Amino acid sequence: MTTEKATVAAGCFCCFGCFDRGVEHLYNKHFKKDGIKTKVGYIGGHVNDPSYRQICSGTTDHAEALEITFDPKAVSYATLIEFFYRMHDPTTLNAQGPDRGSQYRSAIFYHSPEQKETAEKITAKVQQEHYQGSPIVTAIVPAGTFYDAESYHQLYLDKNPHGYEVTEGKDRYK
């Protein structure tokens, strides 16, 4: 089996701002049947091996992110990116719900020229179809080093089902 990686940042990786659903939790809920593997961590900053406390300070320039390992024969990169746009507000700069700071930015960290092209096409489509009145501010940038978050953050809502009230909610643009 050949696998690829997709890395996205859509706000807080654990609780997803005021929407009370974690980015990791939602991807696993919707794509576990497709064999994805996920881990949360930090990407896009200038400090090696940052801690959660450093990230929260807003001084490292890292984003809280999700790294997805997937089999493109089971689920496409395009499908994963389309889902990314359904789970958060891509029009708010450095913020999701009550969470504020560059660590909560909306970003797609691509791992190949093909991923970049796909992310740009999907972003343009979503902009045209769902956000004509507000520009999408999602950054589409090359993936750098991904640093795993601390173990207590991994699968946080599975380990702490009462830590946040998980609700299904609705698609952002249905």
Score class of each variant (00 low, 15 high):
Tyr104Thr: 00
Pro90Tyr: 04
Glu129Tyr: 07
Glu165Cys: 14
Phe83Gly: 05
Glu168Ile: 14
Asp89Ile: 01
Asn48Ile: 00
His62Leu: 12
Tyr42Asn: 01
Cys18Thr: 09
Ala63Cys: 13
Cys15Lys: 08
Ile108Tyr: 10
Ala149Asn: 02
Ser134Trp: 15
Asp148Leu: 14
Asp71Ser: 12
Thr91Ser: 09
Arg100Met: 13
Glu120Val: 12
Ile122His: 14
Gly144Trp: 14
Asp89Val: 01
Arg53His: 13
Thr138Met: 06
Pro135Gly: 08
Pro90Ser: 10
Val141Thr: 09
Asp49Trp: 03
Thr118Asn: 09
Gly58Gln: 04
Gln115Ser: 06
Thr167His: 15
Pro72Arg: 12
Glu24Thr: 01
Phe83Arg: 05
Lys5Phe: 15
Gly133Ser: 14
Ala6Ile: 10
Ser57Pro: 06
Ile122Glu: 08
Glu120Met: 11
Cys15Ser: 10
Asn48Tyr: 06
Ser57Phe: 09
His25Tyr: 14
Gln132Arg: 15
Asp20Glu: 13
Thr38Trp: 02
Thr167Tyr: 10
Tyr27Pro: 02
Cys12Ala: 12
Ile122Trp: 05
Ala65Tyr: 04
Val126Ile: 15
Gln132Lys: 15
Cys12Ile: 00
His162Ser: 15
Gln132Glu: 08
Asp89Glu: 04
Thr92Trp: 04
Phe13Lys: 05
Ser76Asp: 00
His62Ala: 05
Thr69Cys: 08
Lys5Asn: 08
Glu114Asn: 12
Asp89Trp: 08
Asp49Gln: 08
Asp71Cys: 09
Arg105Tyr: 05
Glu82Tyr: 13
Cys56Gly: 10
His30Gly: 00
Ile55Ala: 01
Cys18Met: 10
Thr91Met: 13
Gln103Glu: 05
Asp49Cys: 04
His111Asp: 00
Gly163Gln: 11
Arg172Ile: 11
Tyr152Asn: 05
Lys33Leu: 09
Ile55His: 05
Met87Phe: 09
Lys33Asp: 13
Cys14Ser: 14
Cys14Tyr: 02
Thr38Asn: 06
Val75Leu: 14
Val47Phe: 10
Gly101Phe: 11
Ile43Asp: 03
Lys37His: 09
Gly101Met: 11
Pro142Asp: 02
Lys125Ala: 08
Lys125Glu: 14
Tyr42Leu: 07
Leu93Pro: 00
Ser51Ala: 03
His30Ile: 00
Phe146Asn: 12
Thr91Asp: 08
Gly97Ile: 06
Ile36Gly: 03
Gln132His: 11
Ala74Val: 07
Ala143Asp: 11
Leu66Gln: 09
Pro72Phe: 13
Phe16Gln: 12
Thr3Phe: 15
Thr38Phe: 03
Glu67His: 12
Gln103Ala: 00
Lys32Thr: 00
